Amino acid sequence: MALRSYPLQILALIFSYSSIISSLNFSYPAVFNFGDSNSDTGGLVAGVAFPLGPPTGQTYFHEPSARFCDGRLIIDFLMDAMDRPFLNPYLDSVGAPNFQEGCNFATGGSTVLPANAASTCPFSFNIQVAQFIRFKARVLELLAKDRELEHYLPSEDYFKQGLYMFDMGQNDLDGAFKSKSEDQVLAFIPTILSLFGTGIQILYNEGARNLWIHNTGPLGCLPRIIANFGKESSKLDQLGCVKSHNKAANLFNQKLHDLCRMFQEQFPEANVTYVDIFSIKLDLISNFSQYGFKEPLAACCGYGGPPLNFDSRIACGQTKNLNGSIVTANPCNNTTEHVNWDGNHYTEAANKHISEQILAGNYTNYPMSESAKINQYICSSDNYSHD
């Protein structure tokens, strides 16, 4: 059926919406972040003892970063875009960190599902939400006693005006594949997202109104996943990524988008932004040479050489005795040529590219409340007809 006529009002509304997408109003007084290693700026290092040492990586200012990267993460670039300082982790109280413009509750290895004794990280989403509630209550308590603390803590208004960022779910899918079949993993996705929905509703009840939600990336394109699950060529797609894991990530993202839209409809005061990280990362891996990269899948910091430079027995930066030889998983000479850093995470160069795509608005449904208004207007208009 072809669209017969469009009234000028609808066209004007669409063009107005397009301008919103292309120039994000990305300015908030504070940011409160929840997530895993993709946005952990030091939480896991502060909260967990590492018998083998903390994650390796150097930030661009040449100091230990405690990030799972060779430099800045996506969230670091987004904070730069808002002209805000990098977020201090909630768990790091050493050195009296400044939380005036936000706080990072993300910790590497975190899951949406509640942590148990076998979990890599104890700080799952429900714990991060509980930490935020405690943080907010303590901040308001302290500010009531001493207003001078506003130089170090967010003011009460910041909790409602601030941006609440989320980047979780990858570890839940990853963990599920270790004990479940592909069909079982797919069937398990609604359970994961139900718990995520509960968490963001709790935060909404605490005053969160601006929600910025990243979907999960192409899990099947991580060198670690390819090394473990892609030993048979039939399990790989044309890019060399594991089909089952990317299929699960795609379904997770579809359901997450549905959850975001339903949340927006249920809570009209919320401003829900859904960011398609999967498409950005998959485009980067698919068209890596166009963006100045030479290695789309191989880890920069690893061991084993081409095609993946990844060996599960030795992590980035470690030295071990493998089969009678002392070997070290060293970084590559030029990290800017690699999309992947250590088999699990992206390089600073890749994160910079991803952030630029986010800020351009090309993969961002922002805000879903405005999108819903436009769709409702177009679909309910009597001024157009179909053949």
Rank of each mutant, 00 (worst) to 15 (best):
R261E: 09
D80Q: 14
A12P: 07
K243A: 05
V139T: 14
Q170D: 09
I285V: 15
L52N: 13
F288D: 05
E156L: 03
A66F: 03
N116F: 01
F196L: 06
M368Q: 15
P114K: 00
F278T: 01
V112F: 10
Y346I: 06
Q170Y: 13
F229Y: 15
G43M: 02
S371W: 07
T198N: 11
D183M: 09
G71N: 01
R224N: 15
H338F: 13
N340Y: 05
P190K: 11
M1Q: 06
K145Q: 11
F86A: 15
H257V: 08
I75Y: 04
I226Q: 04
F68M: 13
L163A: 06
L297E: 00
C316T: 03
M79Y: 12
R84H: 15
S19G: 13
E63N: 15
T111H: 05
G53W: 08
H151T: 15
N38P: 04
L11T: 12
H338Y: 15
T364L: 13
S371H: 15
S124H: 09
A360K: 13
H386C: 12
N205S: 13
F252Q: 08
F310I: 08
P64Y: 12
V31H: 00
Y363P: 01
Y291I: 12
N116C: 05
D83M: 07
C103N: 02
D174E: 02
D40P: 07
P122Y: 03
D36V: 05
Q376Y: 05
L193G: 09
S289I: 04
D146C: 05
S286D: 10
E150S: 14
S37F: 01
L73D: 00
I74D: 12
I127L: 11
S244A: 14
I280M: 15
P296G: 05
M82V: 00
G53I: 03
H345L: 08
F32I: 13
K243L: 12
H386S: 14
R67Q: 01
P306L: 03
G71E: 03
L8D: 10
F99A: 08
K352G: 01
F26A: 07
A137Y: 10
V327W: 01
P296L: 03
L24G: 08
V129Y: 11
P89G: 10
K145V: 09
L140C: 04
G35T: 07
N88S: 13
R261F: 05
K243E: 04
V139E: 11
I225R: 11
H345G: 02
S181K: 10
T364Y: 11
G102D: 10
L24H: 05
S244W: 09
P114A: 06
G305M: 02
